[in-house]
């Protein structure tokens, strides 16, 4: 067995060693992620009355979720907010990723990426709270604008509503959008762009016909990695959203921790995941068709 392949190979001994090695992290994910996710699914078909759990399988929670207007309203609003956050984040992030990949000198790129990621790692709670300070009635924006005489009355539309949630989340997820797009742009063979220019395309058409399609995998990754987690955020809606900016995660949290109705919370969690999952799949199918149409 001195011949350990120089490349990953499918030999039986090799496969066994690989499986053995991946065993611990796989078991961990299986027991603490896959099983609990399954449990949530099962739970959503149970019912709870105060502290007594009824394990008869029933669709009662789902029926309630679809008939109670509040739940549907929260689910739809969460989808809209997540969608708006995703569009805003990815559109704002693309030029930055493009700039760093195409216009920053190679030895300075790591520095730029580092600068972009730092705010992301710093206390999430406090960052969200600080947006309240920036957007608030006596906040930075209002006092500054009043100070230089642009407005007389503080702007009210920027705090305690969905706008504030979108701004705050677009800020929180910025690096998640920039990094995948940056990686995709870095992989583009620069000679393709030259070839396109030589063949008579302008800067703009080269971007639209060469750069953008090649960057699409990064954009798709960015969209999914922003869109899916955003639906589960409850800190931002609670702190800056006001009553009309609350999202489904706030309701899930209330069901679990305040109302003691875990099965209802589980059903809402399943529904929220099903909705983001469905939207993500439609999005993936559309981009695949777009790319095939180009190729």
């Amino acid at each position: 067995m001195s011949d350990t392949g120089s490349r990953p190979r499918a030999g039986r001994g090799e496969a066994a060693r690989g499986a053995l090695l991946v065993g611990p992290p796989f078991l961990y994910a299986l027991l603490l992620l896959a099983v609990p996710l399954g449990a949530i699914g099962l739970f959503s078909f149970w019912t709870q009355d105060y502290l007594t759990l009824d394990t008869t399988l029933t669709l009662k929670n789902y029926r309630e979720a679809f008939t109670e207007p509040l739940y549907m309203q929260l689910l739809l609003r969460s989808l809209m907010i997540s969608g708006a956050v995703t569009v805003a984040t990815v559109l704002l992030a693309f030029p930055v990723a493009y700039y760093v990949s195409f216009h920053v000198r190679p030895e300075r790129k790591a520095m730029w990426i580092f600068l972009i990621t730092i705010p992301f790692w710093t206390s999430y709670l406090i960052r969200v709270f600080l947006w309240k300070v920036i957007l608030g009635f006596n906040g930075v924006i209002n006092t500054t604008l009043q100070g230089i005489g642009i407005i007389d009355e503080p702007l009210r539309f920027i705090l305690y509503n969905a706008n504030a949630v979108v701004i705050t989340l677009a800020h929180a997820f910025a690096p998640f959008a920039i990094l995948p797009i940056f990686v995709a742009l870095e992989k583009i063979d620069r000679s393709l762009l030259e070839a396109s220019r030589d063949l008579g395309e302008t800067h703009v058409t080269t971007f639209l016909r060469v750069t953008l399609p090649l960057a699409m995998p990064g954009v798709v990754a960015a969209v999914l990695i922003v869109f899916i987690p955003t639906i589960g955020d409850y800190v931002t809606p609670r702190l800056v959203g006001g009553p009309n900016g609350l999202m489904i995660a706030n309701m899930i949290q209330t069901q679990f921790l305040k109302l003691n109705n875990a099965p209802m919370g589980a059903a809402l969690a399943v529904l929220a995941m099903a909705m983001v999952g469905a939207v993500s799949l439609v999005f993936l199918a559309l981009t695949r068709r777009y790319l095939r149409g180009r190729g």
């Binding site: 990695i225 987690p229 955020d233 589980a266």
Partner: peptide
Amino acid sequence: VLPEIIVAVS
């Protein structure tokens, strides 16, 4: 890519 609240409640 999983929302943290899903990991938490499950």
